[in-house]
Design a protein around this nucleic acid. Sequence first.
DNA 1: CCAATATTCTATCGTCTCATAGAATAACGG
DNA 2: CCGTTATTCTATGAGACGATAGAATATTGG
Lengths: 227, 227
Amino acid sequence: MDHRAFKAALYAQFARVGHTLGSPKRLELLDLLAQGEKTVEALAEQSATPIKNTSAHLRALRQAGLVETSREGTYIRYRLADDHVTALVRSLQEVSRRRLAEVEQVTALYLDRRDEMEAVTLSELRRLMRDEAVTVIDVRPRDEFDAGHIPGALSVPLAELGRRLDELPKRKEIIAYCRGPYCVYSLEAVTLLRKRGRRARRAAEGLPDWRLAGYVVERTLAPAATR
Amino acid sequence: MDHRAFKAALYAQFARVGHTLGSPKRLELLDLLAQGEKTVEALAEQSATPIKNTSAHLRALRQAGLVETSREGTYIRYRLADDHVTALVRSLQEVSRRRLAEVEQVTALYLDRRDEMEAVTLSELRRLMRDEAVTVIDVRPRDEFDAGHIPGALSVPLAELGRRLDELPKRKEIIAYCRGPYCVYSLEAVTLLRKRGRRARRAAEGLPDWRLAGYVVERTLAPAATR
DNA sequence: CCAATATTCTATCGTCTCATAGAATAACGG
DNA sequence: CCGTTATTCTATGAGACGATAGAATATTGG
């Protein structure tokens, strides 16, 4: 085996992984899976994609070694193969953000820029929590909270936030976090909270980023209901 | 613009970058560019690809925002858009390595496993250099050395190593580094050095990784000859 | 302004990929 | 062991992509 053949084989393998990152749906699935393992059904619903397509994409991801499966009754659960996959996806997003003006345009259309400016970094958040200066809420679906959350955070899924406002202290500032830098749950939570007269900001990143930063992640013991 | 449309647009942009990572040649070009800027001609030669193909791939990379160009006389120089791109490529390689048994098989065919075991990590290397315990040689082509190298390292391109052995101290251990974890220059250098009775090891990673680790990189002032 | 050089642009053909439909498989509940 | 549910496998047509050939562009030097 000579130089060229070696290089070609090597880069062919890298490209195999790279190729699976070339589809919007697959990237969305990876982002969802970064929140914790999920069934095909849940992934299909949360990505608004037919189950058959979802299954096909998941197969591609598995063949590239990015995700793994395990069976639980008639359900099959998918999860990321390891944290390096999360890091890879985030790295891709980071490069995209810096390089593609389009992403800025797209996000500007949806995300209010002022909210972004006020976002709390994870290290700041950590300090604020240590000082008990803030109330932190996790506005993701409950199963994602159960699969892993910031210790001390309250699970208040976005859908429940409106009717559970009383549970939250009135004075302390509230920090909402969700899936990641491009997840809009925390943004909507902040908007709602402010409308109701609370002081609130969003975290700049989400739970997967917290994990990647090496901070402690807590799990709810009783395994979550599916979904 | 609603949730789904926003997400779709966002992930479409990420996928645009991801897609360009799906071709072996493009990944190879990115790896080469991580060593410093190069002309199309140099890239074509070093990747053993026709210029036309190289140009086409470079165009794809530029459209995705991963590389930038500048003109210098009749030559056009390409360079990575920023260090995040290097990090992305390394992240991809890391995930590939962990996940694809094939990469291990491929590398095992070419890289001698024992050499890998003895590789010096960059932080170790840094310590050894501080103590002046080793001689460090950069076995990449000289233009890559000029574009950026470990301070204190000697430029000894692999092709010149055989006839320049006298320049290297006889007692001190020699550490060779090159382009990155999968570059074979340093491996071949170590093999040659040992054959000639020197104590030698390779660095586990290359110059781009040194840069990413945040260590100081030195440049040769007189801009290198092309190539 | 013309020739030479480096590079890109445009167009073509074969190949790969995607979405998706229909059939198949695997585990559970009765 | 049979029906049900969750999921995968197989097959197919439309479209996208890669390698590459030929024409075009931009800069330099005369």
